[in-house]
Simulated assay, not measured.
Amino acid sequence: MTRVLVTGGSGAVGRFIVDELLEHGYEVTITGRNEPAPSGFRAPVRFVPLPLDPKAPFADALNGCDMLVHAAFSHVEGRYRGGEGDDVTGFWRSNFLATLLLINAAAKAGMKRAVFLSSRAAYGKPAPGATLVETMSAHPDTHYGAVKLACERHLESLNRGSGLVVTSLRVTGVFGSAIPGGDHKWRKLFADYLDGQPVASRCGTEVHGRDVAGAVRCVLEADESDVAGEVFNVSDLLVDHHELLAIVAESTGCNHPLPAKTDSASYNVMDTTKLRKLGWRPGGIDQLRSEVAALVTA
């Protein structure tokens, strides 16, 4: 049985990855600051307390594992862009230096595969309407995007001679059920609409947490020549507030006015052809509709 260490395994995205791996027969160890509830996953997992800190005992946590998925990220609660808060130095120390030390420890431990969860923010703000393709020049405009891109570029070099195959996934906004005891990302948006409050027009690219997890498993199981040192976009739908709240209205019978449709022609959609060639298939609009309906009625 393949043993995988998932950093941040109880987080908003990490928990989907853990359940995906468990479902497909992997043995999973997770790390984090606090031990999750035993009922948080579909099967038992081993927990190792491990802060995202350059002084953390990464080698000890990796002991006995065959693969690594690095989903942990240190930031101000509820914020990614702007997640550095008032501590830019600490933000880079935790998310850049600690990441490099963790992946280096994985290489020294003889691991064969590692996946790094990067972000759409690595692109920055390309020309309006430009499609985001992995080969285009990236110019991040936030510390969040800059630290992700810096990690990608340094991890790419590990594929040359270390024996560790490292793959980076540039993930867009993730939706899905909330962490136990927490709120899902659209809670306030849905509540404002149902209360008759005005809602701004907006659109953005989205992907379900299960599809992010599927992408992780896809690259872990792909031929190493197809994924070594590569970056893959992970995105599914361009979602508009009008479309999203229309599903809420249909699910609840609410007849409050919907926000105007957004002119999406200038939005930067992510191209996922590269990942789809490996066999990845996201859930699309049907999954969005069923998930939103479930979130509203929960």
Rank of each mutant, 00 (worst) to 15 (best):
D86S: 13
D87V: 05
D87M: 03
D87E: 08
V88R: 14
V88N: 07
V88L: 15
V88G: 03
T89S: 10
T89M: 09
T89R: 13
G90R: 11
F91S: 04
F91G: 05
W92Y: 10
W92H: 04
W92A: 08
R93W: 01
R93T: 11
R93L: 07
R93S: 13
N95D: 14
F96R: 08
F96G: 02
L97D: 14
L97W: 02
L97G: 00
A98T: 06
A98S: 15
A98H: 11
L100K: 07
L100M: 15
L100I: 09
L101D: 09
L102W: 11
L102I: 06
I103P: 00
I103L: 02
N104E: 15
A105S: 15
A105H: 00
A105R: 07
A106F: 09
A107M: 01
A107G: 07
K108L: 11
K108Y: 00
K108R: 14
G110C: 09
G110Y: 07
G110I: 03
G110A: 08
M111T: 09
K112I: 03
K112L: 04
K112M: 03
R113G: 12
R113N: 12
A114L: 06
A114T: 00
A114I: 03
A114W: 00
V115T: 13
V115E: 11
F116I: 04
L117D: 04
L117V: 11
S118P: 06
S118F: 04
S118G: 15
A121C: 02
A122T: 15
A122L: 01
A122E: 07
A122W: 01
K125W: 03
K125S: 05
P126V: 06
P126G: 07
